[in-house]
């Protein structure tokens, strides 16, 4: 289950009640950010961060570096295939 979408935190609406405004493709909505606050992140640190939103709650901050790493691995899986293909083509 669990429909979740990445959205960007635009501003903090109510720091006491942990409410922020997020934007996803021009759609905005107020969400609760309690689950992404911890000793490293205070509300104001979250501005412009991307978070995963599920039923009106930010559940996790998107790790940009890890996202890039995953994309790199994905690209490499492809390259391997292409290389094998090239060898096959070459041997014909």
């Amino acid at each position: 289950m669990c429909l979740g979408v990445p959205a960007q935190i635009k501003k903090i609406i109510d720091a006491d009640n942990q409410i922020a405004l997020v934007d996803l493709s021009g759609v905005s909505r107020e969400i609760n950010i309690a689950c992404v606050l911890n000793k490293d992140y205070q509300a104001q640190d979250l501005i412009d961060k991307w978070v995963l939103v599920h039923v009106g709650f930010a559940l996790s901050i998107v790790d940009e570096e890890e996202a890039q790493k995953t994309l790199k691995i994905l690209a490499e899986i492809g390259e391997l295939s292409a290389a094998i293909e090239d060898i096959k083509q070459g041997s014909k």
């Binding site: 979408v5 990445p6 960007q8 996803l24 996202a67 994309l71 690209a75 899986i77 492809g78 295939s81």
Partner: peptide, 19 residues
């Protein structure tokens, strides 16, 4: 859409499917 569209690239998919 950031963090969405990059992970929907059909060209990449074809290569992984082959693997």
């Amino acid at each position: 859409m950031k963090y969405v569209d990059e992970f929907r690239d059909p060209k990449q998919a074809k290569k992984i499917l082959k693997e």
